[in-house]
Amino acid sequence: MKKLYVVFNSQVDNNSMGGGDKIVMNISKVLGEKKLYDLKYIGCPEGYEMVSKNIKNVSFSYLNKFKVKSLGLLGAYFLRILFSFNIFKLRIKNEDVGLKDTVLWSSSDFLPDTFPCFLYKLFNPSVRWVGSMFLRLRNPFKKEIKFNYKTFFSFVSQQVSIFFFKMCCDHICVLCKDDVNYLIRKGIPKSRIFITSGGVNIKEFNEVSISEKKYDACFVGRFHTQKGIDDLIYVWKKIVEEGKNKGTKRKLAVVGWGDEKQVKTLNDLIENNGIGEYVDMKGFLDGKDKISVIKSSGVLLFPSSFESWGVVVAEGIASKVPVVSYRLPTIYENFKFGVVWVDPFDKEKYFSEVEKLLTDEDYRNGIINEAKDFVNELDWENVGIKFSKHII
């Protein structure tokens, strides 16, 4: 059987799984369950914790034992890159399967994930390397995003990984046409780039039932400015005020995570706008706990300003909860139904659409019903099978 080694070597902790992690984990899980590949994972301690939490009887080999909690983010990041050479100690080359039937998949474009694969491919050209770029980062040098050490470091890191992709990566998976065109402009042949997608576990969503709606709306995501935190609070304050005028107390559930500064910023926004009693901070949730909150909500708010696909949008559709999103081209091309689109970044229109969904049941049900057939296209099994055809 062909072998697939998935590299999870950039994780910060097991309670902050991003959309890219979720995509790689679920697609690889399908490839293993369908016995298309003998599946193995390699990486850091946090990578093991995250994978083992979501996949039973996981086969995992450590590239290093460096933890962010002990060394800090930058310390762990650089040491993981430095110890990438440990990939040569793993028994990737074995007697029953040659390297031509072996695939390395870097789960992100972070250097701790790409550099080990690049090194191994460089010295073993017959192994196939699948790279991932799930979010093209904005350029701080061109003032596309505020310049600070984080944006500088992240952008430069991605550019180095793209250089590695150009040199010897066999396949690069992205999430939208814009990113395909971006990599082509970087000199990577179109034949080596393919579009995959996020997805949802339809069976898991169907297993969660709720007796009543506890929240008028919910937000799911990182507490990052590009996720639209400022717009979220602006809109929700207006929703709360409109509810008061109608004698209704509106409640927002916030499911998400962030670093200490991001959490404080969000909490300050909530308190400074006087809506603390109208917001329920749920913290990080995943699996059925998260699904339960989404299904218990009337509307899912997705005010992101920068995305490549939008896993949370799919989760809203699968929960039969209408989603309100800005019409970003990278999201709009992926979701045909189940979403109310608002011109970027019209906060007043966003507010009016949310209010309409909360007060007009026929309008709300119409958005839900139009997506009832489309939702099956988002199942991880379908996504995984399509992915496998690109890396054969």
Results as ranks from 00 to 15, higher is better:
Glu241Val: 05
Ile162Arg: 00
Val180Lys: 06
Val51Phe: 01
Ser305Asn: 13
Ile145Leu: 00
Leu63Arg: 01
Gly287Glu: 04
Val279Gly: 04
Val6Ile: 10
Pro125Cys: 07
Leu300Gln: 08
Phe8His: 09
Gly274Arg: 09
Ser191Asp: 15
Phe78Tyr: 13
Gly32Ile: 10
Gly310Val: 07
Leu183Ile: 13
Met25Gln: 10
Ile317Pro: 01
Tyr41Glu: 05
Ser319Met: 08
Cys176Ile: 04
Ala371Tyr: 01
Val321Asn: 06
Leu328Ala: 04
Leu357Thr: 08
Asp231Ser: 15
Ile367Phe: 00
Thr102Ala: 04
Val311Met: 15
Glu361Met: 05
Leu252His: 06
Lys251Tyr: 07
Tyr182Asn: 06
Leu4Asn: 08
Asp179Lys: 00
Asn64Met: 06
Pro125Thr: 09
Tyr149Glu: 14
Asp21Val: 12
Lys349His: 13
Ile172Lys: 03
Val30Phe: 06
Gly287Cys: 10
Tyr326Ala: 02
Lys22Glu: 14
Ile270Met: 07
Gly20Val: 14
Lys264Gly: 01
Tyr41Thr: 09
Val339Lys: 04
Gly19Lys: 03
Val51Glu: 10
Gly256Cys: 13
Lys389Ala: 12
Ser191Glu: 15
Cys168Val: 11
Lys251Thr: 14
Lys2Pro: 15
Asp268Trp: 00
Asn86Leu: 06
Asn369Ile: 03
Lys186Thr: 08
Lys100Val: 15
Lys93Ile: 11
Phe163Met: 13
Gly310Tyr: 00
Gln262His: 10
Phe110Ser: 12
Pro189His: 02
Leu358Val: 09
Ser297Tyr: 10
Ile188Asp: 06
